[in-house]
């Protein structure tokens, strides 16, 4: 039972990052490897606000979200949009460069000591014999609510439907009069906000550090590949599955290869079901 709870908690952390990336990747179709850096910046700003400036936790989380949105929008407007008509290799290299540049700048600003954001509730709840802290359960619930809200937004609002059209065919959407630049930027803002929220919440249970982004974005890409591109619920479910695979793998196989299980699982899924677990045609939401 503890393995199940551990897996769901860790999976929710992965899911919160993957859901935002799924939106960005689905709508704008750029390899936004720096999405993990939005998670890091969200966590770092929240940490500094709460630990160093004594601000309340909720204010710190809010500032973390704002910082992540600013970073995401800046990346879209200053890098991906100007490069939109260039060769895909250019995009790829620039996206990878950000993964090196942003942590280096963050290191200069914040240093690299891994720190946990203080003043979060530290109660422990027992469920069917398994234990979890209050903040871990908050993360599970927030991830579920945020995913449901994003799905509802994409399905039921005008701007959400415009993003859906862009995800299906950006050129055709532009021909239909949809301002694709505006909605691409909005997709970056929403996806980055989720990343910032994820970073700030994650920072209350695990330490925030400047090099945390790369691992998270790698797992996010694994999730959206095996879950199926474009599916927001698929990204959420994929996150949970990845968390469970790592949790049970570490408990019943070996804790030495926790990260390896993600890649093994990805390979198996791609061999058995190349279109992903939650196939695009049926579940694009």
């Amino acid at each position: 039972m503890q393995e199940l709870v551990n897996g769901i908690i860790q999976g929710s952390v992965f899911a919160l990052a993957a859901v935002g990336l799924s939106l960005i990747f689905g709508v704008v179709r750029v390899p936004h490897f720096a999405h993990g850096e939005s998670v890091m910046v969200g966590g770092m700003v929240a940490l500094v606000a709460v630990a160093d400036h004594g601000l309340p936790l909720l204010v710190g989380i809010g500032l973390g979200i704002v910082a992540a949105v600013l970073l995401g929008v800046a990346v879209q407007l200053l890098l991906f949009y100007p490069l939109r008509n260039r060769d895909e290799t250019n995009l790829l290299i620039c996206a990878l460069a950000l993964v090196l540049i942003i942590p280096a700048v963050a290191y200069k600003i914040w240093g690299e000591s891994p720190r946990i954001i203080p003043n979060a509730p530290d109660g422990v709840i027992t469920l069917f014999g398994a234990r979890a802290t209050t903040m871990k359960l908050v993360i599970v619930v927030v991830t579920l609510v945020a995913t449901a809200a994003l799905v509802a937004y994409v399905a039921r609002t005008r701007s959400g439907r415009a993003m859906k059209a862009m995800a299906l065919n950006s050129y055709a959407a532009q021909l239909m009069g949809i301002p694709t630049r505006r909605y691409a930027t909005l997709a970056f803002a929403i996806g980055s906000a989720l990343a910032g929220l994820g970073g700030a919440l994650l920072g209350t249970i695990q330490p925030v550090q400047v090099d945390m982004g790369a691992t998270l974005v790698l797992k996010s890409f694994i999730i959206i590949i095996f879950a199926g591109l474009g599916s927001i619920w698929g990204a959420w479910a994929g996150g949970l599955i990845l968390g469970l695979v790592e949790s049970y793998g570490a408990s019943y196989l070996s804790s030495s290869y926790v990260s390896t299980y993600s890649f093994l699982f990805l390979l198996v899924v791609l061999l058995v079901r190349p279109q992903g677990l939650f196939s695009l045609a049926k579940t694009r939401d």
């Binding site: 503890q2 393995e3 551990n6 908690i9 860790q10 891994p114 695990q206 330490p207 550090q209 945390m212 790592e246 949790s247 793998g249 570490a250 408990s251 804790s255 030495s256 926790v258």
Partner: peptide
């Protein structure tokens, strides 16, 4: 006899065992 990797942040799986 379990293990972790330097810099890991979540140890719940190893600790559960």
């Amino acid at each position: 006899a379990g293990s972790w990797k330097l810099g890991d942040t979540d140890f719940s799986a190893q600790l559960t065992t």
